[in-house]
Structures are given as structure tokens and as C-alpha cells.
């Protein structure tokens, strides 16, 4: 199989890049995503706060994704959902897997819009046991908003990035007790906007210059040891859930061995982490326009 432009990832960035590449004249575009529906992380973001710059109004994640998807429907961009891109090779072929089989696809250009992954607690030198009840913030968001799964009740959040704050609010609204957000720096890790919207109104405590040094509990987590970094004081806090918001890592494993070939473009969170969807989209639109042009014509 062949396609002129392959886009890996149908999140906000992948969809925006596909749209702008189409508008710039590219007529053979395949947009692949492992998920069953387009939008990437957007469908799990039920809060409002998307699209102020792009649409002049604040949409929920699903609404924002739907707008992009509707525009794409009017184009001839082909979707391959439920499709895992397993490998991208230097000879401009990719291997795709879905329930019908493997496909070896030849492409002329490729946009990687694979988003990012959350840093997991395994990467930190945290002592103690390895019990159940430890999740990343984005994971709890997906669990609650897409699968109706309940992560826990007495929740401590490690990290005060945007994801941690957004989930602190959702937990609180869902009747759970957020014990505190624990932040190693002296200030909040996310946007001021999220602090004012998600933390302040609910009087959720934020412990600055503090970190988690130990995890307790045999089956399910039953507490953590906190260390106050300035005083060195440690205290044990009971909890039944630990949610980590330790930061996002651009997901580029698929292309890590390829160097920087001219046919490879990066867009969205896998290029750099964007706080706002509008900025991911604006960047992706530019990338889409560049990738729309055949290499021999561009050079």
C-alpha cells in the first residue's frame, strides 16, 4: 500500500496537520491512530477550557475534537482508527497493525503527531512498597471519563502541573477527598489559570517544597511519607490513592533511530509539550502546510 502523506496520531495536532495539508493541496493523506475515535487526549477532557484563542469560546475537549473531525469529514483525508503504527523505517515504509492484519505502507512524507506520555513514578527514587492504587493523573482522567472506573477516595496528588490541578478539581467534584497536592518547587507547576479555577475555589491544600519519599501499604497503598525539603522534616500521611502528575515526555520512540530525515515532520505534543490545544493546533497547521508539498518540489 502507498500513501503520499502518513500522519501518525489523530489527536488535535494530527487532525489539524491533516486539514492544513489537505487545504494546501495534498490529496493523499492517511491519518492513523491506535484509538477507536479521533481526538487523542481530548475526548477524556470533559472540562471546558479548549479553543479560546482558536474559536473565541471555551469548549470541552470532546467538542473541540468534534469540530476538527467535522472539518475533516468534508475532506478526502482517510482515517485508519484502531490502528497501531508498529514501526517506521528509514526507507519510508511503515508497518501498521489492525484487526484485519499487518499493512506495509510506503509513504513519501510522514508527520509524527503521537502526543506525549506521562512520566511514571517508577522513574523517581521513591522507597517503599509497590502496591495497587498508584496512577498517573491522565490515567485517572481516562479511567473516570471514558471507562467509568473509580480510582479511589482519599487521594494525594504528587506534582502540581496542569493535569494534577485539573484532576484535583474533578476528584473534589466527584466527592473524593484530595488530601493535598505535593510540589517539590516553591511554586505551582501549571498555569495560573488552572490554579485559580481548580485549586483556589475548593481550598485544596498545596504543599510546596515537599515530596514523597516512601510508599506504604502491602496490597493497596495506605499512606506515603512526605518530606518537607527545606526543614528535612518527614511525616506519614494516610491515603488510599496516589496520583502522579510528574510531567509529560514527548512520545518519539517510533523515530528515535531515524535521525532527522527531510521527510519526517513532528507536530503537537510529540514535538514539544503544549499547555494549550490552540498552540498545538497552530503549530500543527504550519507543519501540515510544509508537509503538503512534495519533497522534490520543495527542494
Amino acid at each position: 500500500m502507498k500513501t503520499e502523506l502518513l500522519i501518525v496520531g489523530a489527536g488535535a495536532a494530527g487532525m489539524a496537520a491533516a486539514l492544513s495539508a489537505w487545504e494546501a493541496g495534498c490529496r493523499d493523506i492517511l491519518l492513523a491512530d491506535r484509538r477507536g475515535l479521533p481526538g487523542g487526549i481530548l475526548p477524556q477532557c470533559l472540562h471546558k477550557g479548549f479553543g479560546l484563542a482558536g474559536y473565541g469560546t471555551e469548549l470541552t475537549g470532546p467538542d473541540y475534537a468534534a469540530r476538527l473531525a467535522q472539518r475533516l469529514e468534508k475532506t478526502g483525508v482517510r482515517f485508519a482508527l484502531g490502528t497501531e503504527v508498529l514501526e517506521i523505517r528509514g526507507d519510508k515504509t511503515a508497518v501498521l497493525s489492525d484487526r484485519r492484519g499487518l499493512t506495509e505502507l510506503c509513504f513519501d512524507r510522514l508527520i509524527l503527531a503521537a502526543g506525549c506520555r506521562e512520566k511514571s513514578i517508577g522513574s523517581l527514587p521513591v522507597a517503599g512498597t509497590r502496591p495497587a492504587g498508584i496512577f498517573t493523573a491522565g490515567q485517572t482522567q481516562e479511567m473516570m471519563n471514558l471507562h467509568g472506573q473509580d480510582p479511589g477516595k482519599e487521594i494525594l496528588i504528587l506534582g502540581s502541573g496542569d493535569l494534577g490541578m485539573i484532576m484535583a478539581r474533578q476528584f473534589t467534584l466527584a466527592g473524593k477527598h484530595v488530601i493535598a497536592l505535593v510540589e517539590k518547587d516553591a511554586r505551582c507547576g501549571g498555569m495560573a489559570r488552572n490554579f485559580h479555577r481548580c485549586i483556589e475555589p475548593y481550598a485544596i491544600p498545596v504543599l510546596y517544597r515537599t515530596t514523597v519519599t516512601q510508599i506504604h501499604g502491602a496490597g493497596r497503598i495506605n499512606g506515603v511519607t512526605l518530606r518537607h525539603l527545606d526543614s528535612g522534616r518527614e511525616e506519614r500521611i494516610p491515603c488510599d490513592t496516589l496520583v502522579t502528575a510528574l510531567g509529560l515526555i514527548p512520545e518519539r520512540v517510533l523515530v528515535r533511530k531515524l535521525g532527522e530525515p527531510v521527510w519526517l515532520f513532528l507536530a503537537g505534543n510529540c514535538r514539544r509539550v503544549h499547555d494549550l490545544v490552540d498552540s498545538a493546533v497552530a503549530e500543527a497547521e504550519q507543519v501540515g502546510r510544509s508537509a503538503a508539498i512534495r519533497l522534490d518540489k520543495a527542494l
Binding site: 495497587a132 472506573q149 480510582p151 479511589g152 496490597g219 493497596r220 495506605n222
Partner: peptide
Amino acid sequence: SEAEVTKDGAGSEILGGGRNEN
């Protein structure tokens, strides 16, 4: 049910929390 699924045996349920007294 999903609430009964464990990480590594009874007492390590993934969902729900609120079971630990100690």
C-alpha cells in the same frame, strides 16, 4: 466486576480505595 480485580491478590484491588484501615 472491575472493582474485584486485583494487582496481586486479595487486598490489592485496583479500583475504589477506601479499604485500608491501618
